[in-house]
Design a protein around this nucleic acid. Sequence first.
DNA 1: GCAAAAGCTGAACACCTATTCATGGCGTCT
DNA 2: AGACGCCATGAATAGGTGTTCAGCTTTTGC
Lengths: 224, 224
Amino acid sequence: MVYRRTHQVVKRLAARRSAILAAAREAAADGGMAAVQIAPVAVRAHVAAGTVYRYFPSKADLISELIAEVSRDELAAIRRAADAAPGPSSALAAAVTTVAVHVLSQRKLAWGILAEPVDVDVTASRLASRREIAGEIAIRIDAAVRAGHLPAQDTALAATALLGALHESLVGPLAPDNLDDPVKLRDAVQTVTLLALRAVGVMDARARGLVVQATTPAKALVGA
Amino acid sequence: MVYRRTHQVVKRLAARRSAILAAAREAAADGGMAAVQIAPVAVRAHVAAGTVYRYFPSKADLISELIAEVSRDELAAIRRAADAAPGPSSALAAAVTTVAVHVLSQRKLAWGILAEPVDVDVTASRLASRREIAGEIAIRIDAAVRAGHLPAQDTALAATALLGALHESLVGPLAPDNLDDPVKLRDAVQTVTLLALRAVGVMDARARGLVVQATTPAKALVGA
DNA sequence: GCAAAAGCTGAACACCTATTCATGGCGTCT
DNA sequence: AGACGCCATGAATAGGTGTTCAGCTTTTGC
């Protein structure tokens, strides 16, 4: 063998791969999943269309990785927020709020990751993504239940329902469209968080709504 | 003019149109929206592919009407159930239960109507469908609020969130897949109804969960 | 029965984007 | 410096499905 990948090359390859993924993410954040087409993404990443296929076997794989990546970031943010909370109930509230703020900060991207029609099959990665997030929420609900703050319940189902409520009301087609106003945005987050927490049995949810103020402002979360 | 539509012909045309819509509905109930393709639908309706275009300008229109039709049926069922209830809270519970039972009875169809990726743009009719159903739920929430059974709240947002919770947990990708068992089915309906009612502030929701027993059994609702 | 008009047919077309692959360029090792 | 081979290119290809339309069938009114 007269050719071996040098460290420099490996780094360049990795960078290019990241660039392609980043380009896909930008495209999705910009115009939804519909905008994630091979040719435009390639242009964004400053490579040729064929090059994309040297890094991803197919468009489905590209989008799947995109979903996985966003999902990982989201999960990390949720954990960070929840772990920083003083108790199980606050942790749950923080987790819910984090999801709400994130999806609102990146509506198009969230819609694309969650539910937007795509011409390739990405059900598997979407399922995995939802499972991860729902699982994390379920864990937090469970903790609150064990701490005696919530009634016993089917935590998995409850977590799924919570996410459904958040997504539908904040990024779904019926979501209010005037959420650019920061005040209304915060109101929406608070209202939905309140609903979600009451759904699982929190009684003093209104008081906990204040945790919204304690979390990192939306701006800082946009990039995460 | 030596040709005028006779009553008989008008009836035949209407019948054919219905047949095509029915075929589309069957296809959707059978294999989701992905199965609603012009050629197969035409076969099911016993017409040629071209004939479909004599009744619907495009596939998007066909699917839009399908969505509208199912939505109308759903709305009627919700109203019927809610109006039969003795009071505002029961009406709300009945409405929620009806939605839950219906989507569970026709998972594939519901998924297709609500969220399944489609290759044509049906956002408008989906939006209208959601708006109608959510509006009806909002009305029922509002009635309960006015009766003093629920705290004041943004009823439109609450209704949207409720539907999101129902849909995600019952027909979404994370929905339990063993809901063929009638017992588990009823459990799921009851659990999700409980969650939904608590979300809007019902305190004695557990007791109201019993309304599930009072509603028409799933079997009778399948065709509706 | 016949001409005119509407309805129906289904094979051919059109369109759109993911995917391929022959070609050229660049990095690596002796 | 030179030869070898990986990497990148992007125009051409492929494939599938919605849509069209010229010809055929059915219905109507006389």
